[in-house]
Amino acid sequence: MSKNILIIAEQRNSQVQNVTFELIGISRELAKANDAKVEVLLLGHNVGDQVANIVGYGADSVFVVDDPALESYMTEPYTQAVTQVIREKEPNVVLVGASSIGRDLAPRVAARLNTGLTADCTKLEMQPDGSLEMTRPAFGGNLFATIVCPDTRPQMSTVRPGVMKRCEFDATRTAQVENIKVEFAPSRIKLVKEVKQTCSVDSIEDAKILVACGRGIGKEEHIQRAKDLAYTLGGTYCSSRALVDAGLVESCRQVGQTGKTVRPEAYLAFGISGAVQHLAGMEDSELIIAVNKDETASIFNVADVGIVSDATRVLPLLKEEIEKIIKA
């Protein structure tokens, strides 16, 4: 067995996703504890041009399985390729993004390798002896548990996108690149078609400023005002689960345990009570401003600026104030 950390890169439409660079970032930190190497496994078809990005963000070596069977994400061929590479390279740790792809792939691989898997980790720490401490939320973020996997290897973990920080990109970095061949078994599942549903042009994970809508402003007219405010600020809008369930906001804008994790420079929460599930997705924002009528709302426990006021009435007035400042 090696000391190394193997990251399963996530690519969609042959583009490596941010979570992969975040996993490389945390792995560089973890690798210091026991002098390990950071390896990345890239799976796909015609994905060779993605290697440079993976190297630039900090991989020591990159393994590539490039095959038509891996063009679209499918459980069986991906599991087969990942399992083969893990058996060959014997990493100490395997990290996978906790996306709808990683959360399908990782348990299948872990069961095949008969090893432990810890889901949706938000914190990872490496001990000098190479044992990994994996901290994850449970009970909707009400409780946290630190999990270890003492006796089986590799130690496997999925990590939520948006939680870990990537390293600075360095185009001068070099790494060993190795192509690996896999003989794929015929797939028992047939891909009929693939449909892309792009949320909107703006992604809530990339926004500098987020205006967040909660149940307290749960009417279309108020949400429209929140959108107007968000765009005036050069940011975008997001919401708690309640408004997504009510069909008022698209699900790709949901922040929280079952939605996305965000850490914008400013998070402006309007009418959000702050269920722990929601807080889990936004509490690392740099500046949190919360407006809620209910002074006992939990959102105030994480807010840097907590304002007890009627959010529906603050929204239009705030937009005017912002416009004044921008014009001045």
Partner: peptide, 25 residues
């Protein structure tokens, strides 16, 4: 079970943060 819970803990939130009671303007 290959995985073991080493410890579990509740999230600590600071419930004594300052709040401002203000009119909308």
């Amino acid at each position: 079970s290959p995985t073991k819970v080493k410890q579990s803990f509740n999230k600590q939130y600071n419930s004594n943060k300052q709040k401002f009671v203000l009119d909308p303007a």
